[in-house]
Simulated assay, not measured.
Amino acid sequence: MGQWAGFGKGLLGEAFSFVKVFLFLQATNDHVGGFVLAKGPSMLPTISPSGELLLMERISVQLGKVRPGDIVVVQSPLVPKKRVAKRLIATEGERVTYVVDPKNSDSLNTIVVPKGHVWVEGDNIHNSYDSRNFGAIPYGLLIGRVFWRVLPFKDFGSMEPHEK
């Protein structure tokens, strides 16, 4: 019986250690950042439609330090369980002129981003569902800022923002 009690204590200790590691990783993901798998055509040529593994940090969003040109991960305003990667174009109070119909570059519209909102667009104007379709989104839908490409290894490195 003593041998089984020792085995049980050891197993319980291992399970407790596993739970602590899991909780630490979950808290890190929820408050600091983590990995994001981005795929689809909307961010071509910046992100491959076949998928890339990216690192995202949440602190810039929490501190209000995201800037136009950053690639951000956003909770979809239309499908709440879906997350998408888009380029931050403008923040509250900034003026945005955008092409309403990509097939007609003369179809321009200009808006001022409302207070508490941001304007996001995919880099691929011909195949992106973004603020050009659904308008400015609440700042609260921003999840994090992408800063590093992990995979594919040939493109490993920083994802420095650039103005669109």
Rank of each mutant, 00 (worst) to 15 (best):
V72P: 00
V146N: 00
E14R: 12
G116D: 02
M159N: 01
G116V: 09
G122T: 09
S158T: 09
F134D: 08
L12F: 09
V74D: 00
V96N: 04
A27P: 00
S50I: 09
G69M: 04
V112M: 07
G69E: 05
K39A: 13
E52Y: 05
K81F: 11
G135C: 03
F16E: 12
E57I: 07
V21A: 13
H31Q: 06
L23V: 12
Y139T: 11
D30W: 06
E94R: 01
F22S: 13
I111H: 10
D123G: 00
G69T: 00
G135H: 06
V79W: 04
T91F: 02
F153Y: 13
E121Y: 06
G122L: 08
W119C: 03
I143F: 05
G2I: 08
K82D: 14
K65R: 14
L78S: 05
G6I: 05
S48M: 08
V84F: 08
I111N: 06
V118H: 03
V150R: 02
I143V: 15
R67S: 14
F22E: 11
V99C: 08
R95T: 14
K86E: 05
G64H: 05
I89N: 05
F153T: 12
M1T: 06
V21I: 13
L88V: 03
K154E: 15
M1P: 10
W148R: 03
T97K: 08
A90T: 07
L78Q: 11
G6A: 14
D70S: 03
L23F: 08
V99E: 03
N29L: 01
V66L: 01
G69Q: 03
Y129E: 11
K81R: 14
K164W: 13
P80K: 10
S76H: 05
S131L: 03
L23W: 04
V96K: 08
S60Q: 08
K9Y: 06
V84M: 10
Q62C: 02
S105H: 11
V100S: 04
P161G: 10
A27C: 09
R149D: 01
L142T: 05
M43F: 07
D30F: 05
